[in-house]
Design a protein around this nucleic acid. Structure first.
Length: 272
DNA sequence: AGTACGTCCTGATCGC
DNA sequence: TGCGATCAGGACGTAC
């Protein structure tokens, strides 16, 4: 599902498609609950006629500054994706919203499960002030990770999903980072050793960096319709599959209601 | 405050 | 073959 690498891929796709510089027409919103702020009417009125000046990303949020100082903010939820196509082209199934562009194309918001959301904000930085560090920027340090986990008794897996701890991780990359660092998903966060914390920090950066690169290569190879989803992780997510490191059959448990795949040999629950 | 869990959604898949 | 039940999980609201 859209996590940091997928959202970053979307950002790069939108920029390369020339969204910046385009003036938006009145958006067609077919699922009103998608708009979180302001009202749907104010959102449509506020977006119409404005020009997009850039596409930025914070965690899993896409932020498009507009030429009047406001910001169009998008979250893809679990199944959302964005495409820019000619207005005449057959609309895809599950098209939920569209933003007409002044060059005859349109920005399409496709979202089967309707978990994506839209905002029109004057101060997105304030709205996102509780979000944790960007894992691919220098602010994400071992010290920052240690500090945010030190007093927590929840399972490590659950905390990796909290956007206030790290911005941009989701269920799949959380599992991947735990696998790469050899940490069982149910390990209590405040029992992680210094070595485990530094290994987890490195694993998060490695997993995300690897995936961002995989998307970049796919964009180049498959332009102008690059994939919105790859599977650029190493821990298998299917019953009966073997660990890529030791061939032990991987297992799945539920942590906070989320499926968590791990290798019982490489990620022991009890560390001595 | 920290932790845990239900809720929103619908296409795909599973079991009888 | 068909149909109901289950699963998937990001972020938030609520409860303890």
């Amino acid at each position: 599902m859209p996590e940091l690498p997928e959202v970053e891929n979307t950002r790069q796709y939108l920029l390369r498609s020339g969204l910046a510089g385009q003036r938006l027409g009145a958006p067609e919103i077919t699922w009103a609950k998608t708009v979180r702020e302001p009202s749907v009417g104010e959102f449509i009125e506020g977006v119409a006629g404005r020009t997009v000046t850039d596409v930025q990303r914070r965690g899993k949020y896409l932020i498009a500054p507009l030429d009047d100082g406001q910001y169009l903010v998008l979250h893809l939820g679990m199944t959302g994706s964005l495409r820019i196509h000619d207005a005449g082209r057959e609309p895809p199934p599950m098209l939920r919203h569209l933003f007409p562009l002044d060059d005859g194309r349109e920005l399409r918001f496709i979202d089967p499960r309707k978990f994506g959301h839209l905002w029109l904000l004057t101060d997105p930085a304030d709205a996102m002030s509780k979000m944790g560090p960007e894992p691919l920027e220098p602010t994400f340090t071992i010290g920052a990770l240690t500090e945010s986990l030190a007093a927590r008794k929840a399972p490590a897996k659950a905390l990796l999903l909290e956007q206030s701890v790290i911005a941009g991780l989701g269920n799949l990359y959380a599992d991947e980072a735990l696998f790469l660092s050899g940490i069982h998903p149910e390990r209590t966060a405040n029992t992680l050793s210094d070595d485990e914390l530094s290994g987890l920090h490195r694993a998060i950066v490695t997993a995300l960096t690897r995936s961002v690169a995989a998307y970049a290569a796919a964009r180049d190879a498959e332009w102008p319709d690059p994939p919105t989803a790859l599977s650029p992780w190493t821990i298998p997510r299917a019953a009966g599959e073997g660990c890529p490191r030791c061939a032990t059959t991987v297992e799945m448990i539920r942590v906070r209601g989320r499926s968590s795949w791990y290798c019982p040999a490489c990620q022991p629950k009890d560390v001595t």
